[in-house]
Every structure is written in C-alpha cells, then in structure tokens.
Write a protein that binds this DNA or RNA. Sequence first.
DNA 1: CGATTCCTTTGGAACGATCCAAACCTGACG
DNA 2: CGTCAGGTTTGGATCGTTCCAAAGGAATCG
Lengths: 349, 349
Amino acid sequence: MPRRPLAERRLTLRDIALGCGVSPATVSLVLRRSPLVHARTRARVEAEIARRGYVYNRAAANLRRRTSSSVALVVNDLSNPFFAEFAAGVDEALGAHGCVTLLGSTGESSERERAVIASLLEHAPAGIILSPAEGSDGASLARLVGAHTPLLVFNRALGGGAWDMLVLDNRSGARAATEHLLALGHRRIAFFGGHRDSSSCRERREGHLEALAGAGVAAEPSWLVETAPTRLEAAREVGALFVRDPAPTAAVCYNDAVALGLMLGLAARGRRPGRDFAVVGFDDIPEAAVSLPPLTTVATDPRARGRQAAERVLARAADPRVAPARTVAPVRLVVRESCGAHAAAERAR
Amino acid sequence: MPRRPLAERRLTLRDIALGCGVSPATVSLVLRRSPLVHARTRARVEAEIARRGYVYNRAAANLRRRTSSSVALVVNDLSNPFFAEFAAGVDEALGAHGCVTLLGSTGESSERERAVIASLLEHAPAGIILSPAEGSDGASLARLVGAHTPLLVFNRALGGGAWDMLVLDNRSGARAATEHLLALGHRRIAFFGGHRDSSSCRERREGHLEALAGAGVAAEPSWLVETAPTRLEAAREVGALFVRDPAPTAAVCYNDAVALGLMLGLAARGRRPGRDFAVVGFDDIPEAAVSLPPLTTVATDPRARGRQAAERVLARAADPRVAPARTVAPVRLVVRESCGAHAAAERAR
DNA sequence: CGATTCCTTTGGAACGATCCAAACCTGACG
DNA sequence: CGTCAGGTTTGGATCGTTCCAAAGGAATCG
C-alpha cells in the first residue's frame, strides 16, 4: 500500500487568502460561489486563483463537511462490452453531477470483490454500484458495506440485504424473442447457452418456456443447452443441438456472444443462419448490428442502465429515507436478419 | 456538484480508542501495522475494530500525511474493447499496490477531457494516466496538470510537456504485417482505414511503406484508403479498393475493427477473405480469434499495457526525480487464416 | 537505590477546508 | 451625532488521522 509524497507543498486556500489580503473564509466562499461575497472581492480572489494556478482540495473539504463526492463502481468484467458500456454510462452520469467514479474490477472472483469493496469503502464513497461476481454472498456483503453507504446491485439478483436493485427484464425479453420465432412459424425452438445457476440465465429460460407454453408447444429438454457465456464455448457446443432427429429449426440464445458463436458453428456445419436456422441473441452489443447476417436480438442498452444506476444511487445518497426498490429495466426486441424475418417477408411479397 | 450528507456520524479511530482504553495514536499505529505496539494491545484494538465494524478514513489520513492513494485514469472511449482492456489492466495493477482508480471518460472530446482532468485533479491523485482524445493540445494540458502530478500519456503521441509516454511500436507492427504479406507473394498491398491525422495511423502507414520500399515494391497512393476506425465505416469504404484495375490482392488494416469491416465488405462483394484476398488487422481484440475466418493481426496486449502504465506512473509518483521517458511497447504478429498463410501452406504440401 | 536502558504509549499540534457566531463596514435615518 | 439595518468579512474551532517529542514503565546494571 504505497503512500507517495507529493512533490512540493501544494498551494492552499490560505496562500490565496494571504496573496490577496482577505481571510481564508472569504476565499472559501468565493470557491463555493457564495452570493455573500462582494463582486469586487470575488474578482480579486478569482484573479489570484487563476494567476497562481490554485487547485481545490476536495478531500479536505469533504472531510470537514462530512460529505463525499465519489461513487464506487465495482464491476465483474470490464473487458465484456456489456459492462464496459455500463461503466461508461455510470461515469457519464456521475460526471454530470460533479461526482467522480472510483473503479474496481473483480474478475468474477467474489473474494477479490470483498477486497475491492473494502478498499473502496475507505474512500468513503457516497454510494456503491455493484455488478456482483458469480457466487457473491448477499448477507456477508451487507455486513461488509454496512448501513451507511447506499448500495445498488445491478444485473444479478442478490438477496440478503435491503438495497436497491436494477435488473433487466430478462423474462419478457426472452418471451418476446421466442414469440417472434413462433410467429415466424417455428415450432422446434432451442434455448442455447448460459449457465443454469446464473439468475439472468434462469429468468431468460423461464421467459422462453412461458412463450412456448403460451403457444401450446411442448418444450424439449434436450434443446436447453448449457455453455459458458462466450463465443468460443458456444461455437464448440453447437453439435449438441443436432444429435437427435428432428433437430430444432431456431434458437433463442442466452446472449449475443453465444449467438455469434452459434452462428459461427452453424456456418462451420454448412447451415446458413437466417435462412436454414433462425438465431436470436440478447444484449444488442455493438457487433450484433454488423455481424453476418446482422443479429436479431433483445436490446438492453447498457449505457442507459449505467446512467440510471448512477442517478438512483445519487438520489438515495442525497436522501437516505427513500426506501430501496427493485427496478426492472425494459428491454426491446430488435429484428434484423439472423431470424429470417426479413427473408420471410420478402418471400411473401 | 452534489454534496451528500453521510447518513450518521461514521465511527472514528477515536471511538475505537475510547472503546478499549488506549489513545488514538496507538490505534493509528495498530491500523498501520506498526511494530511499535505490543502484541497484547494490538489484539485488543483489533478485536474492538472488528466488533464495531470500524472503517478507516483514508481521506483524512491522506490529508494529514500529504499523500494520495489514488491514480486518475482518463480514457477517450471505454466502449472500445482495446481501451476497456487497458483500463482493466490499469485497475488490476493499481489494486495490487493498494491504490484506487479514479475513472474519467472523455468520449473523444478534448473539451470534456479538460473538464474531467480538472475535476480529477481536485482529488489529488498520485498520478494521471491519459489516453488523449483526438485533438488534445499538449501545451495547455501541461498547464492544466501542473508540475506536481506525474502524467503518463498512452497510445497517442502528444508533445508540449515533459511527461512519460507509453506507445505501441506501430511502425514495426505494420512493417511486420506487410512483410508477412510480401513473403506470401503479394505485391499489390493496400493500407486500409484510419485517419491520417491520428499519430498511430501515421506510424502504421509509415511502417507499411517502409516494408514496401524494403522489398522494392512501389506504393500506389490510391491504395491508402482513409475511413473512420470503426467496422461499419470500413465496410462502407471497401469499394474504394476496387475502383481501378489492377486492384490490390491484400490489405494491412489500421486496426481490427476496420479489418473485420473489410472482411464483411469483401464477403458482400463475393470475395472470400483469406482465399481471394488477404487481410491483416492490428490490436488482436478478442473477436479477432473467432471471426470467420480468424483474423491475422498484430497483437498489442492492451491489458499488459495497462499494467505497465500503472507501474510506471506509480514509480514516478514514488520518486519524482526519475526523468520522464518514452517507452515503446513491442507488438507481435499473430498469424491466423485471414491472410491465407495457412491455406498457402496446405496447398504447398 | 538511583541511573540507564529499552520498549510502549500518549498529548497536542498539524493537514486544508468549512462552519458559526460575531465583528465590521457603510449609509440611512431620526 | 448616535443608532440601526444591511450587506460583507473574519477568527477560531472543527472534520479524522498522523507526526513529533516527550513521558511512562519495566528491566538491568553499577
């Protein structure tokens, strides 16, 4: 834990005060744009500040005022574009409020997650936005974070404490995807990818099964294929869809990475996605729009989720009386070509 | 600029001291693992700390010690996987040193960049790692940051101040890519994508031209095609390669995004990348390995660059006497299938 | 027994900004 | 000329931790 000596003594508010013959208190008022100070004084002080290149010391101010101007963002995997976008959204919204983002990444390890949160808490953030690693324990997190710091949990359900939650409407999204495929005439529809024990995967599967049940179509258990949620793993598992006859003619995928992997695997087997087999993804990552064929998917707009998370945590920090709530963010089916809808429409014409 | 009242008074070191009948100074020593305190006392204090759930206030400590335990990371585009990986590497290395990452994203706007840096400086970071937005002005940045805070500039050349630089060996990378294509027998090789005014693009072009010159091959100016560095824009501009006869048979691309766009555009024109036309990218983003065909590219390992940047800035913060240096990080050609090398090898067999 | 160690512990003044109450102006007014 | 109200300015204590010099306590030694 390095403590690095600052090169020289930093200029302080007192130096500015001395420099233009007023008291520190007055300089402080100028810095905080108080209407109390006379315009003439303010101009003099501001000139001195600019001339000497004074930099405000927010840590000292926060200490005295017992406030905080930062929010911690703890994310499980920054290299996943979904979370990177989310982080960008969080930072954008926090920045707009003059708040700074304390970043911590956990690499999907709940042990590192605890360490990272403990370290960030020492900086007294106004709140914590957490996208939990797999296998995080809610109760012990609650103990770690304590009651003073508002916590917002994103993306994964996590019980054990009274905190804000922001999750995607996984169930409706998957239901819409499956219903879309049903409407296109498919009856043998697989659910491809994801881990059963992830809450988002479970919810998406439920939505899928709901849609099937709604249409009176029986679900075929062997068409629920589990894979790690990555393109590579998904591509490897494509064979599992075609071991039995009849095989499915379409698949709803756990996420876009898996869907892209599935399309790769289909191509390797000589099947053309969007023509011989319909594929729908989930997330709408940037690549979905430019894949070959463009991927029909369920858009979750992670950047907007990030902004939303930031706003909520700031609101709760400003007024701790507001009760924690669970927000379900809407998602939206984006029809492109991998589901064959456009081709079907053309044939009909 | 919101200042949020903390819910209740936080537990302080003084509370712990009172709680177990020692002085605050002793508790402070315990917290900092000083060997001065007696084992018995330490145990007593530590028990009390655990029992009451005391959280260290690093801001107060930093204030008194005139040190900092954070580093600012200012990045132009988090949603770009290259920078997201870089950020993950920075955070990883800083975390290992007990340092926390202050994140700021600029969205490629040099105006926001100034605002973000000014805001982060108020938190007195031990250093700043900056991946500058296009069009940043070095001299004015130098003035903004001041002499006290070490600055490390990543990825883009930026003159006007005495700071550390960490850049990729763009020139050698591009030269290696072009030489590889030359070795495969290509003579009509384009350089595709990127903006002329970006320093990294300029360097890559230079490396490309160097390789051509080294092989005695004349460069054809119309085969230097400019595009925005995104997949979509690249796909749109593919036509520019084929307006004249003879057309190039291979292209070195500004980066992987552009290369993937080029492959898409080729496919749309009925040309098979890796067979009818050789493509080489730059960066080795995760998708490069799983594209169709897998992309031959120049690996830059952004995560390792992030770690490297963090180490350097910490080193300079620890000892400001070390002179700023310019580090050129090596890159490495990764041969996959989009350049046709494997196919060529097979035909030869 | 007092002096001399060594090992632990501790008051109290910082760090840089802010809060509060009190002081200071300047003009207006009786 | 004294009083008063209004707008401005300011000492000094304070936020939670650390530094420093100095004090306390036990053990050793002459």
